[in-house]
Design a binder for these strands. Structure first.
Lengths: 183, 183
DNA sequence: GATGCTATTGCAACTTGTTGCATCTAGCTC
DNA sequence: GAGCTAGATGCAACAAGTTGCAATAGCATC
């Protein structure tokens, strides 16, 4: 999985059991199982890899056009507390959600082709160990974000000294926005 | 500098020469030296360490109340191309600008106390080397962002297994938003 | 099945930026 | 000093989220 490109982190329609579990887990905490949450859960169950928040809102709207963003984001916060999703920040600062994260991992973003890969604990081990030893810092691997150029893009941009480019100069037409919420 | 907390990365009112140079460098490229750019430059010259975009807009407004955000952000883009500033994404995805970056460095963010430190090339060397060797990936050190808990916060949160917290559960009252622009 | 408590929702407002476009102006030329 | 023209500005609209608050509605209870 550590070499899988963006969106390939998980197999289709992850383990059903994990999802069926959710209503009960909510109730056990005195929380409620609402139609809006049902919608989001069904969207997540059908999602793979990393998905940004606005994309999830769109998918929910496809099922229930009445969906409002605030409810989706609040539910995502809740699901993160339950460990159902996990979020990280992409190269451009936007939040990306992982569905049912199996192992903690960081992310590698190519600012050329805009693909993303996962960085396993093994690859980050030396950095994590160094920061721990030198500073007593405990790294949250799921928030590790590394930008740069993949092999292909680096080769393609080869010409002597490419000017320092903005992290998304290559972005398409209408640019989006990032989200800090409390992440 | 690698152990300096947020905002201590640079000494007060950095090297004057670097700033005096800007008008000429702009003109050499056929660009213009305008009052708005003069205002932003004076703000940057008086700034230290990392500053987020909205903070720069505020400081410009303190000098010239007519300042509009779009001009500030566009000028920052330009200054980044000139190497006068550099931006990175904080733990919450918001962009932070470094004034006159000396050496490339990544960032370490504590999600407990919200302080930030710089990660020097040395500390990141093993990760950079590993990614380069294994994947041919060229790391952009200035975009390296690591979150976690500093020694003190880790100790303070000690209790057995703290629940996985959002990256800014500890944030103050009114939360801001991140910015992807083209970064 | 009706009731009540409180978690949840939806709305509106706000934050931090970005973009398109019409207008203005810095600075080169004459 | 006046004219020109492309670069820069300012405005309005939009994007992606977050929050406070009043209204709604799960769901446990009776």
């Amino acid at each position: 999985m550590t070499t899988s490109p963006h969106g390939v982190g998980r197999s289709e329609g992850t383990a059903p059991a994990a999802w069926e579990d959710v209503p009960a887990r909510l109730r056990a905490r005195g929380l409620r199982w609402t139609p809006q949450r049902r919608t989001l859960l069904s969207v997540l169950a059908a999602s793979t890899g990393h998905v940004i928040g606005s994309e999830l809102v769109e998918r929910c709207r496809a099922i229930d056009p009445e969906t409002v963003p605030s409810t989706v984001y609040r539910t995502l916060d809740l699901l993160e507390e339950l460990g159902i999703v996990r979020h990280a920040h992409g190269a451009d600062g936007r939040e990306e959600f992982h569905v049912l994260p199996t192992a903690e991992h960081g992310h590698l973003h190519c600012r050329g082709c805009r693909q993303a890969w996962e960085i396993g604990a093994g690859e980050a081990a030396s950095l994590v160990a160094a920061l721990s030893a030198d500073r007593g810092f405990t790294v949250d691997l799921s928030h590790l974000s590394v930008s740069g150029l993949c092999r292909d893009c680096a080769a393609a941009m080869a010409p002597p000294r490419a000017r320092p480019r903005r992290c998304s100069d290559e972005r398409g037409p209408a640019p989006p926005r990032a989200r800090p919420r409390r992440g």
